[in-house]
C-alpha cells in the first residue's frame, strides 16, 4: 500500500505539492489525473524516493521511503514516461540484469521471464540490441522488467505512450490482473479514458493538491455531470480555476472541494 501524509514539495518559491494526504490500500488500482504542472510527477518522484519531500512522509508497503528506503524500493517498481534502458544490451540481458538487481535467483528469473516475455510479445526482439527497437517495444520491455520481481507497489507514469492498441490492451490487462492479485498500482496519466477504464479510484490533482478523490461515479456526482468522465474532470478543474481567479490569495492552496 501507499500512504502519503501531509506531503509538501517546494522548488524554490514554487509549491509543487501542497499538503497531500492519501492512502492507496493493497490491491487498489489508483489513477491520478491533472492538468500539466499540477504536481503528478513530483508526487510520483517522492513516492519512489527520487526526491525528498520538503515536509511530510511517504510509506510504501509499510516502509518509510526516506527512513527505510532500501526496504521500500525492494517492494516497489517504477516505470517513468521515458524509461531508461541500456541501449547496448539485448532485452533478455536487461531482464536478467533487473532480476539480479532484485536478488532473484536463476529459477525465479526463468519463471518470471517465461511468463512475461510471451505476454508482452517480446520473443522476436529478445536477442536484438535495445537501441534498434521501436519506442513501443522499449516501453514493453520497461514494463516487463518492472514486473519481474512481482512488486507489491507499481508506480507508472503515462503507461500507454508509444503503445499500439493491441499492446496497450495487453498492458492494461496485465496491470489489472496483478492488481487483483494484490499489487497496488499508482498510475499517472492524461488519458482520462484509461483512468476511467482501469482505476478503482481516481484522484484529480490541481496545483499540488488533490481537489477530488473517488470512483468515477463519485467524481461525476461531485461535479454534477453525467456521461464520460472528461466532463467531470473539466468541471472540477475549471471550478478550481474560477475560485482562484476570484480569490488569488488561495494560490497553491487551490480549491477546497471535499475529498471523498
Amino acid at each position: 500500500m501507499i500512504e502519503l501524509q501531509d506531503l509538501h514539495k517546494h522548488f524554490g518559491d514554487v509549491c509543487a505539492v501542497d499538503g497531500v494526504t492519501l492512502t492507496v490500500p493493497r490491491g487498489e488500482f489508483f489513477a491520478v489525473l491533472g492538468p500539466n504542472a499540477a504536481g503528478k510527477t513530483t508526487t510520483i518522484k517522492m513516492i519512489v524516493g527520487l526526491i525528498k519531500p520538503t515536509r511530510g512522509t511517504v510509506r510504501v508497503a509499510g516502509f518509510d521511503v526516506q527512513e527505510s528506503s532500501l526496504e521500500a524500493r525492494k517492494r516497489l517498481s517504477y516505470v517513468p514516461d521515458f524509461p531508461f534502458l541500456y541501449d547496448k544490451l539485448t532485452p533478455w540481458e536487461f531482464l536478467r540484469f533487473t532480476g539480479q538487481l532484485f536478488r532473484m535467483d536463476e529459477r525465479q528469473i526463468r519463471a518470471s521471464t517465461e511468463d512475461l516475455i510471451p505476454r508482452f510479445h517480446l520473443e522476436e526482439w529478445l536477442q536484438k540490441p535495445i537501441e534498434s527497437l521501436s519506442h513501443g517495444t522499449r516501453q514493453r520491455i520497461a514494463i516487463a522488467s518492472a514486473l519481474m520481481h512481482d512488486p507489491e507497489v507499481f508506480v507508472i507514469d503515462e503507461p500507454m505512450v508509444g503503445l499500439d492498441p493491441h499492446h496497450a490492451r495487453v498492458v492494461k490487462d496485465t496491470l489489472k490482473e496483478r492488481s487483483k492479485r494484490g499489487m497496488t498500482v499508482f498510475l499517472s496519466t492524461h488519458q482520462i479514458s484509461v483512468a476511467e477504464e482501469m482505476a478503482d479510484r481516481i484522484g484529480i490533482i490541481h496545483r499540488g493538491r488533490f481537489i477530488a478523490v473517488g470512483t468515477p461515479g463519485e467524481l461525476r456526482a461531485l461535479a454534477g455531470t453525467q456521461g464520460a468522465l472528461e466532463g467531470a474532470f473539466l468541471a472540477l478543474t475549471e471550478e478550481c480555476r474560477r475560485e482562484e481567479m476570484s480569490d488569488p490569495s488561495l494560490g497553491n492552496s487551490g480549491n477546497k472541494l471535499p475529498i471523498s
Binding site: G49, L50, R73, K74, L76, F84, F102
Partner: peptide, 11 residues
C-alpha cells in the same frame, strides 16, 4: 539518466 534509473531500484 542511469543514475536516476538506479536510484529507483533496491541498490
Amino acid at each position: 539518466r542511469e543514475t536516476t534509473f538506479l536510484m529507483t531500484l533496491p541498490i
